[in-house]
C-alpha cells in the first residue's frame, strides 16, 4: 500500500474530507445494524448500502465493488427467499451468516474505503481540526495504517510455514497458532521500533506544531454528505 503525502494523485472523482468519511462510516454502521428492513428504514438501508459502492467505484476499486455487490446481493436473496423455508438448526445458521453479511459488510466496505483513500497526513490533520488529543489520534492512525501491513506479514509467514509443511490449521491448531503468532509478534515489535525511529527523524517528538501541505477542508460535497447523514439519522431516530 502506497503511503503518499496526499491521497488525490490516483484521480478519484469524489473527494471527501476525512471527517465526513468518518461520519458516513459511523452512520452507515449504525443504520445497517440497527434499522429494520421495512418501510422508511428499508429505504435508508438501501441508501446506506449504495454509498460505499459509489465511493469504491470513485477510487476505481472495481474488483472490490463487484465482490461487495455479489456478497450483499446473494445474502439478501438468501435471507428473503431461501431461509424462511428452512427450519431448525439450518435456519439459525443461514440466518446468522446472511444477517451478519447484510448488516456488517457495508460498514466494513466503508471502513476499507476510508483507510484506502485517506493518507496518514490527511487523517492526522483532520483529527487535529476536530481537537482530538494527540494521544488518541497518533495511535489510531498507526493502528489503521498497520492493518494492511499486518495482512501482508501474515501472507508471507503463512507461505514460509506452508513451504516447510508445518501446522495445518485443522489437524494441528496449536502448532498453527504458535507458528503464525510468534513471527507476527516478532515483526510487530520490529515494526514498532522502525516506526518510532522514523517518527524521530521526522521530528514528531519535537513538540512543535505540525505542518502539512495537503488540503483538508470542508467542500460543498462534504456539506452535502454531512447534511445527508444528519437527515438520515433523524429519520432513523423518528421512525
Amino acid at each position: 500500500m502506497e503511503i503518499g503525502v496526499c491521497s488525490n494523485k490516483n484521480g478519484a472523482f469524489i473527494k471527501l474530507d476525512p471527517r465526513s468519511k468518518l461520519l458516513l462510516l459511523i452512520t452507515i454502521s449504525i443504520i445497517m445494524i440497527g434499522a429494520r428492513t421495512v418501510e422508511v428504514e428499508g429505504v435508508l438501508r438501501l441508501i446506506c448500502a449504495a454509498i460505499p459502492l459509489v465511493l469504491l467505484l470513485s477510487i476505481r476499486e472495481y474488483k472490490a465493488s463487484f465482490i461487495y455487490l455479489l456478497l450483499l446481493g446473494s445474502a439478501l436473496i438468501c435471507e428473503k427467499h431461501i431461509a424462511p423455508y428452512t427450519h431448525g438448526i439450518c435456519n439459525i445458521v443461514l440466518m446468522m451468516i446472511c444477517g451478519l453479511i447484510t448488516r456488517f459488510v457495508a460498514g466494513y466496505m466503508m471502513g476499507w474505503y476510508t483507510v484506502k483513500s485517506t493518507s496518514v497526513s490527511e487523517f492526522i490533520t483532520a483529527m487535529e481540526r476536530m481537537h482530538c488529543p494527540s494521544f488518541i489520534s497518533i495511535p489510531m492512525s498507526v493502528m489503521f495504517r498497520y492493518f494492511p501491513t499486518l495482512s501482508e506479514e501474515y501472507k508471507s509467514i503463512n507461505d514460509a510455514k506452508r513451504m516447510r509443511e508445518l501446522g495445518h490449521p485443522f489437524s494441528q491448531p496449536l502448532t498453527y497458532i504458535e507458528y503464525i503468532l510468534v513471527p507476527l509478534m516478532m515483526s510487530t515489535v520490529r515494526i514498532a521500533d522502525e516506526l518510532s525511529a522514523a517518527s524521530l527523524s521526522k521530528g514528531l517528538s519535537a513538540g512543535e506544531k505540525r505542518t502539512h501541505i495537503c488540503e483538508v477542508s470542508i467542500r460543498p460535497l462534504d456539506v452535502f454528505a454531512i447534511t445527508g447523514t444528519m437527515v438520515m439519522f433523524v429519520l432513523f431516530l423518528v421512525y
Binding site: S134, I138, V142, M143, F144, L150, T188, A192, L195, S196
Partner: peptide, 16 residues
C-alpha cells in the same frame, strides 16, 4: 511518541 506508536501497533495486532 515511541509509546504512542507501540500502543497503536499492538492494539492493531490484538484486535486482528
Amino acid at each position: 511518541i515511541k509509546d504512542l506508536i507501540t500502543v497503536g501497533v499492538f492494539s492493531a495486532l490484538y484486535s486482528i
